[in-house]
Design a protein around this nucleic acid. Structure first.
Lengths: 206, 206
DNA sequence: CTGTGGATCCACCGAATGGTGGAGGCGCGA
DNA sequence: TCGCGCCTCCACCATTCGGTGGATCCACAG
């Protein structure tokens, strides 16, 4: 049985979703919330398997709530259900850890299929959302390091301090620090040691 | 007159080296090669006294070429000249029979001195390389970390600060620092980033 | 032409790290 | 029994790093 929590600031929408899932086999709505903060609470305390999350909400928006849930309840899959599919909405949500992204014009059957997929850890995206993502991935530099950044990381892996690396590349120490900050961002780490580790795991280093 | 053969896959580097030795008394560059296999050929047929050998090259790397030369032209002294001084590069090269190991940031005078020394059968090592060797010789159990040290290194690779690692292992921060100092000694490095790098190169980390 | 990404650089600050030289306890093998 | 390796912990200090919030320049694409 999939334990579902609905997070949306409109009571009408919550009601509609509750009805939609009332007759759904294998899915039970265990809780609701009217804003992000409350949603995080409910999803955590109720041990939700899937969280249907709106984006635009008072107190705490869906992106922040999604990020918070990644921390507090890693087992809960967040499925974004919203009206907007602009790039500025989609990307942060995905980055925050949402497993799926649907629009509110989705049919009830699609919705249920998406919830079941999310419960299995699979991603379901609305077609227009897929477009945005493709656009991101195709962009050079999405996820991978630039040549310069790889050079810097390699030097760091070889034991160079920022100062030494700067000398080796004939640039300033400040530039090394900036490159490293970008590397940390891209690899999702906070220090040079784990950056080196990620570099090896992703086969960027030799 | 010392007969010198230059083996490096970068034409620029070969050019620079040729110029460096153009005005060197008692040294004549008799040949060049762009990869290890070719280098073995040239050094053998040209009766080289000293071979300046890069490590990272296509077709046959410097280590394999050095080993081959030990067989085919025992009179040729192989002097490694490379950018990298990690233990995983140094030790195989020395084992393969290189008589010296210099880094590419060496000054031209150092280089010429090293070539003359190699021709006399003397060893010249870059200071950092000496470190690695000392590390190997000084310690009987060298090369391997204790279980505890591997744990610490793994935590560091996963982004733990000393404090976090201490908490994870239920020991004091001071102990983490001590373990790390031991790790640095054993791996021949000076900081956590290159310790992680060496850890991956030696397959101690996942 | 304008926006965007990449590379370079700056200053400031607190926190983390590395270097050094210890110390004590414990188990194991010579 | 003694020594040695290993694990634990301590203090002090200089250096380095990471975080932040900028800035300029350039090349390239839309």
């Amino acid at each position: 049985m999939i334990r579902l929590v609905i997070v949306d600031d409109h009571p009408i929408v919550r009601g509609g979703l509750r009805d939609t899932f009332a007759g759904a086999e294998g899915i039970v709505v265990v809780g609701e919330a009217g804003d992000g903060a409350e949603g995080v609470e409910r999803a955590t305390s109720l041990a939700a398997d899937v969280v249907l999350m709106d984006l635009r909400m008072p107190r705490m928006d869906g992106v922040a709530a999604t990020a918070a849930l990644r921390e507090r309840a890693p087992g809960a899959r967040v499925l974004i259900l919203t009206t907007f599919d602009s790039e500025s909405d989609v990307l942060p949500a995905i980055e925050a850890g949402a497993i799926g992204y649907l629009l509110k014009d989705a049919l009830p059957e699609e919705l249920m299929r998406a919830v079941r997929a999310a419960a299995r850890g699979e991603s379901v995206l609305a077609p227009s959302v897929t477009q945005h993502l493709m656009g991101q991935v195709r962009r050079p530099g999405a996820g991978s390091l630039t040549d310069r950044e790889k050079q810097v990381l390699q030097l760091v892996a070889n034991g160079h301090s920022n100062r030494d690396a700067a000398k080796a590349l004939f640039i300033g120490e400040a530039s090394i620090k900036t490159h490293l900050q970008h590397i940390y961002d891209k690899l999702g780490v906070r220090d040079r040691a784990s950056a080196v580790a990620e570099g090896y795991r992703r086969r960027l280093l030799t």
